[in-house]
Computed example of a mutant assay.
Amino acid sequence: MSNDDGIQADQAPRPVGSYPHARRVGGLLLLSGLGPRDPQSNAVPGNVYDDNGLLDDYDIVAQTHSVFANVRRVLEAAGAQWEDLVDVTVYLTDMERDFAAYNEVWKEYFPDPASAPCRTTLGITALPTPIAIELKCTAAAR
């Protein structure tokens, strides 16, 4: 659904703050940072918690597939498609552990580097929820 204040995708996880999923500006569609949370349950795919409810481990492959699905949901809500992505910034909380596995998943979704969006991958210390990956995307608006 789209309105003057931005785009909220009913099928994507709710934002963790006061911001839209996306905003259309001229010929661009700017997506807010999206993580891998499941839209229905709000659970993070691949997270493993100990008996005290503390994060014990996670699966970067499961989270990468899930965050890509969430990006697709927002794009579709805005009338765009996966192929409209032009630039992606990826935030990983553990670059050393996760980059190779995440990069393999990336290649599944973008097998031809010539037609893939531009990409920057950053290693950061934390994200606002217990996730290991977040994407900030720009797409061509339709």
Rank of each mutant, 00 (worst) to 15 (best):
D4N: 13
D5W: 03
Q8C: 15
D10A: 07
Q11D: 12
P13R: 15
P13D: 15
R14S: 14
P15C: 15
V16M: 15
G17H: 01
Y19K: 09
Y19L: 04
R23Y: 01
R23S: 00
G26K: 12
G27R: 13
L30Y: 07
L30P: 01
L30H: 04
G33Q: 14
G33L: 07
G35C: 04
G35H: 02
P36L: 09
R37F: 10
R37I: 03
N42M: 14
N42G: 04
V44S: 12
V44F: 11
V44D: 05
V44K: 09
G46F: 05
V48G: 05
Y49H: 12
D50K: 00
D50Y: 06
D50V: 02
D51Y: 01
D51E: 09
N52H: 13
Y58G: 06
Y58S: 15
Y58R: 02
D59A: 06
I60E: 05
V61T: 14
V61Q: 11
T64W: 12
H65W: 11
S66Y: 03
S66P: 01
A69K: 15
V71Q: 03
R72Y: 00
L75G: 03
E76F: 03
A77L: 07
A80D: 11
A80I: 00
Q81V: 00
Q81N: 04
W82G: 12
E83L: 11
L85H: 03
V86F: 08
D87Q: 15
D87M: 02
V88N: 10
T89I: 14
Y91P: 02
T93Y: 04
T93D: 14
D94N: 15
M95F: 12
D98F: 04
F99A: 05
N103W: 15
V105E: 08
W106A: 07
W106V: 04
K107P: 01
E108I: 13
F110M: 05
P111C: 02
D112P: 06
D112K: 07
A114N: 03
A114R: 11
P117M: 03
P117T: 01
C118T: 11
C118V: 07
T121R: 08
T125H: 14
A126Q: 10
A126T: 08
P130S: 01
P130T: 02
P130Y: 00
I131W: 04
A132G: 06
A132D: 05
A132Q: 09
A132T: 10
I133L: 11
L135S: 02
K136P: 01
K136F: 02
C137R: 06
C137F: 08
T138S: 09
T138Q: 13
A141M: 07
A141I: 00
R142N: 03
